[in-house]
Write a protein that binds this DNA or RNA. Structure first.
Length: 486
DNA sequence: TGAAATGTTGGGGCG
DNA sequence: ACGCCCCAACATTTC
């Protein structure tokens, strides 16, 4: 067989460098590696330092542990062992390629800045030795740079992005998992347990009940959602107590299922054409949009995209921040959401917006503090989604909600959790309060509080801030920067 | 993927 | 019958 230009005479296995794409189906790198050589070495590298300072939080680590276990099983069932290595990722991959004399390293394209940096370093390092890095789409529908504005610039507004995206791109078919792999044997694998990704104190019981990390769990949940949730998704996703969410976010983040698979699963669903299907695919495109924004603006996690917001007033109040984190703000829907997050590593999307708006606007605390907390506690913590959406709420990002769009947590609660079912579940000290007061216990008559066994300031906190005062303060802070800008 | 303030309209009570 | 006022309901504007 004629040798391809640029391909060395290396005789080792093709390396499959796993990142946030922990699956065997619709995994182009695995497929390509298996096809070209039949002899593969799948590897996952854990970087202790926490790339870019964004070290995975405890909830993410919990998920990663289980997901890696499932991936290892999936690969073993096909004849290959997953190699675990720990260290700086680029140099670890380069060392490994030399160690096994691999001609090619196949991997997925990720939008995170450090992933891009690693790609460049690995590509250069491999090329210097006559090896090759081959990148594939694994975690997105398309490359983060698949579309540009007519002026050739990255999009900053979702709607035109979505329009261009729909017109310019065709979602590819998923690729099948290789049936049979020939795995490479190495004498020095890390043991997953030694990575200590699981909590030292077992706080994860509720996690285990709620989630099933891994490719099989992702598939099961996706099927359940397509059958039962998709048709009503357009409105159901906003209904807090019944939770019409797909709950795919952590599975998508870790790549246990691909957005391509979900895109096509919509077409196979019982109701593939209704408003629910439209709305769901739109959410998948939102995910593409956040990746697009992060790809082109790697500073997004740390700095407001709209420069005038650098001068925006931010209060510093560790006590209030702590109360927000722990769900003790005295505003029921906010507390319910924050406690749900702490308990199961996830929060309903509507409630994410409410809690985030409360932090950034009513409390006037920095959005970065909220971003950092979500990053630490969410099982679906995703740099692009987290950063772009926090900036969206804070009004300082690409296509951001105007800052003056301030959620009133009482009205939001009454609208999307009218009976207070969600609040009662997560804030049990209010469980017996009448529905008409459940979202604003501070304005309940003494009798109603007594009947419910609520003592404000004792069994449940008074609100940290008067809602209308908080709103006025936030708007004043906004005026201060818009005047300067004008 | 807001909320509150302000403006407009129209029905009905009432002198 | 008429004008006036009130106010709910809805629309528009402003933050």
């Amino acid at each position: 067989m004629a040798r391809q230009p640029g391909v060395s005479a290396a005789s080792g296995p093709a390396i499959v460098w796993y990142r946030r794409d922990l699956r065997v189906n619709d995994h182009a790198p695995l497929r390509a590696a298996a096809k070209a050589h039949g002899f593969v070495l799948p590897v996952f590298v854990l970087d202790d330092e926490g790339p870019g300072g964004w070290k995975a939080g405890a909830a993410s680590q919990w998920w990663l542990h289980h997901s890696l276990e499932r991936l290892a099983e999936g690969l073993r069932a096909r004849g290959a062992d997953l190699l675990l290595r720990r260290g700086p990722r680029a140099s670890t991959i380069l060392t490994l390629a030399r160690e096994v004399d691999a001609a090619e390293v196949h991997t997925g394209i990720m939008p995170e800045p450090w992933e891009k940096a690693d790609d460049a370093e690995v590509a250069a390092g491999l090329a210097a030795e006559g090896r090759r890095l081959v990148q594939h789409r694994t975690s997105l529908l398309h490359d983060p740079d698949a579309v540009r504005t007519q002026a050739g610039k990255p999009f900053t507004v979702f709607t035109p992005f979505a329009r261009a995206f729909a017109k310019a791109t065709h979602v590819p078919e998923p690729v099948l998992a290789p049936r049979r792999l020939k795995g490479a044997k190495l004498s020095t694998p890390d043991r997953l347990d030694a990575w200590r990704l699981l909590p030292a104190v077992p706080w994860d019981a509720a996690f285990s009940r709620r989630w099933e990390p891994g490719e099989a769990g992702a598939k099961r949940r996706a099927q359940a959602f397509m059958n039962d949730g998709l048709a009503g998704y357009a409105t159901g996703r906003n209904d807090i107590p019944s939770d019409g969410s797909s709950s795919m976010s952590p599975h998508l983040h870790w790549g246990e299922i691909s957005p391509v698979q979900l895109w096509h699963a919509v077409a196979q669903a019982p109701q593939p054409h209704g408003a629910g299907a439209e709305a769901y695919r739109r959410e998948l495109v939102w995910r593409e949009f956040t990746a697009h924004v992060l790809w082109h603006h790697p500073e997004t996690p740390d700095a407001p995209l709209r420069a005038e917001f650098k001068k925006f007033e931010r209060r510093h109040d560790p006590g209030q921040l702590r109360a927000w984190q722990k769900g003790k703000t005295g505003v029921p829907i906010v507390d319910a959401g924050m406690r749900q997050l702490w308990s199961i590593g996830w929060m309903h999307n509507r409630v994410r917006m409410i809690t985030a708006s409360f932090l950034v606007k009513h409390l006037l605390l920095p959005w970065e503090e909220g971003e950092a907390w979500f990053w630490d506690t969410l099982v679906d913590a995703d740099l692009a989604n987290n950063a772009v959406n926090w900036q969206w709420v804070a009004g300082c990002g690409a296509d951001a909600a105007p800052f003056f769009r301030i959620f009133n947590p009482v009205l939001q609660g009454q609208k999307f959790d009218p009976e207070g079912t969600y609040v009662r579940h997560w804030v049990p000290e209010l469980a017996k309060l009448e529905s008409r007061y459940i979202h604003e216990p501070w304005s309940a008559p003494v009798k109603a509080l007594e009947a419910a066994g609520v003592k404000l300031g004792e069994t449940y906190p008074r609100p940290q801030v008067d809602l209308s005062e908080g709103r006025a303060r936030a708007l004043a802070a906004l005026r201060a920067i818009t005047r300067k800008a004008a």
